[in-house]
Design a protein around this nucleic acid. Sequence first.
DNA 1: CGCACCACAATTTTT
DNA 2: TTGTGGTGCG
Length: 793
Amino acid sequence: MTQQWIDRFVTARRQYIEDQFQNLNSMQRQAVLSTDGPLLLLAGAGSGKTTVLINRIANLIRFGRASDSIDVPDTVSEDDVLFLEALTKDATEADQCRADYLCALEPPMPYNILAITFTNKAANELKERLCDMLGPEGQDVWAMTFHSACCRILRRDIERIGFTCSFTIYDASDSERVMKDIIKNMGLDDKTFPAKYVLSVISREKDKLVSADEMLEHIENSNEFRMLHIARAYQKYQKTLKENNALDFDDIIYYTVKLLQEHEDVRTYYQRKFRYVLVDEYQDTNYMQYMLTSLLAGGYENICVVGDDDQSIYRFRGATIENILNFEKHYRGSRVIRLEQNYRSTQSILNAANAVIANNLGRKGKHLWTANGEGKPVTVYEAADEGAESNFVAGEIISKSGGKRFCDYAVLYRTNAQSNALEFAFKRNGIPYRVIGGMRFFDRAEVKDMLSYLCVINNRNDDLRLRRIINNPPRGIGAKALETAERLAQAEGQGLYRVVSDPYSYGPLERSAGKFMAFTVMIEELAQLLDTDISLPDFYEEVMRRTGYMDMLEAKPTEENKTRLENIQELKSSINSYVQNAELPTLSGFLEEIALYTDLEQYHEGDDAVVMMTMHSAKGLEFPNVFLVGFEDGLFPGMRAIGDHEEMEEERRLCYVAITRAKENLYITHAGRRMLYGRTNAALPSRFLREIPEDLILKKGGYHKAGYISQIRPAYTPVKPVGAHYSAALSTPEKHTYLELNKGDMVMHTAFGRGLVLSVIKMGGDALLEIAFDQIGTKKLMAKTASAYLKRL
DNA sequence: CGCACCACAATTTTT
DNA sequence: TTGTGGTGCG
């Protein structure tokens, strides 16, 4: 064929493929059709990014890189070109088949595609929608979370780094237990070295891919004794976990990266396997996850990341917004596509969100718009206290809903503790509600106990779980006997189970040997049971009985124990559903699923109830009516964020996420005083409220008029009030209208009382004041905001 | 060994 | 105010 024919073919091919994605807008389609090389997809809230992801994968499987390429196979004839050009929208099935065949260019198999998400929920949604679109072969796409993908990789090759493939996964509380023991054993004070803090330092090191030894090396020549101890604790912690054949959440990714880095054959295997890598919620990835994805995509460099820098709200967990900001530096020749059309909210809601987020400096910049229409203004309600605030929310829901479709309403707050007041109001008003978050099913003691039995049966090296259950229910194995056994195990460099299962070989254990024996025989019998063809649920039933756990609960039928009994029964239904869904159900498979599972999905059970959750948990969700409560400085943005620029930007992103959850109606409420931690404090409206243009806001609520504010707010005298500027000045004081204070000044605050200025730090046109108040202690205040309430003494 | 009592701290938490 | 974890006693 001549070049002209080839060009015509490429054009016709592109046209045909484009026609297959008519349901998308042009930016979305561009994202779907850009198959080759690194691609950064900046997808604003509600811009249909999951749809894009699914269609992109569909395009890859169906047409390979055809939509993005000028390559034409030699087999294509002039006839074919004419056929494609003549093809109409209502082509016969046979013609479509021929067209598909002609257009496909090196299409990958489903298992050549890796699509990584953060949550199980997102992964499941992806899988489901893929299967809807592609049929059963959608199952073979690697659509899973970071952690489950890594587990899958590790189960295959982890033996190369000294674990066995039946490894256990430790959750945060397991890790804490281990660390507490280590701190104690090292003779360190658990006040100066709280396990949580030590673990967080370790977590950050792991994120940087720094091993315990490397950390110690770095620290050794400095004289940071604190870090030195932590580095040693890190070493011990990793050693303990290895002995227990256990990995924590960070290890799952850390070791996968190490495995890929250090074993060329493994790396090559996956780099050849994954022709296309897609990463969802890229703004939430940390360094380690960046390394992982970049290693996995290192073969073909076909990496597509989807994210929204404005929705990065997990910095505190190590997520680094830099990954998204630096994508174009990390991957040369990358393309960037912005999805800014929003299909979720009204323009008013988007305007509010745009206005708030515009105050952030470190961002790529996006401007959401919608064809949905203006919509109603944002309702802002000022309440006297959290009780009144809750009543307003309850009242509004009752009058608006008319008792129907409660599930169309969501209440979002900054901290879980805020749900209490709301729950009272909802109960009083008979509004059905559901609180998401807080205590999770698999965190309940009795559930963890039963799971611990299963863990020990699955992995006899799991000392941590063994210790949890060895005397639960009580078997007369006391702390003393256990301690002796542990010392023996330590001395021999063996696992606890080894010692305990052979107690007669150890003199010091003779008194409790019988009891140890009885316990280990029971475990062994259960383990043998597993080798028969017993079903997993039946097996679990046996575990509940033979361990005596059920008897223990039935023996004392208190209300509490009845609930516990129900909970361990409920675990059986989890096993049931696992068995039904898994291809090849195994105990270790179930345990892995549980370990990597959070019951966030509980929300989609579909009962008609108002949902309450934190703004963090609401990410990715949407509701027709959203209430954002507790918009007060000190609560949202939180105390810690005030005066810390980075933190403040993160809070603002959270605010942006919260606002963009609403489809039709958005309410924002704040209270003049709020009880927190048993203490009532005066509170000022959140600065984020002031960032929303007034013309988008409809103020509601009589509290303002009831005069509370005018009581605490002293007559504010704006500098030279002139005509129309007067009201503007009232709501937003201009630069330098604040009280100029110096270190050492005594001040009087209308709400906080008398105080001494400890420090003044200038920040732009504002200043951060640190004031020690006589009554309530030291507070950080922004001069601009506080000036209205402060006077010099 | 189990229970009661006290001290203490307490954003957010996809895995 | 709430929950949790550690300690000490019966």
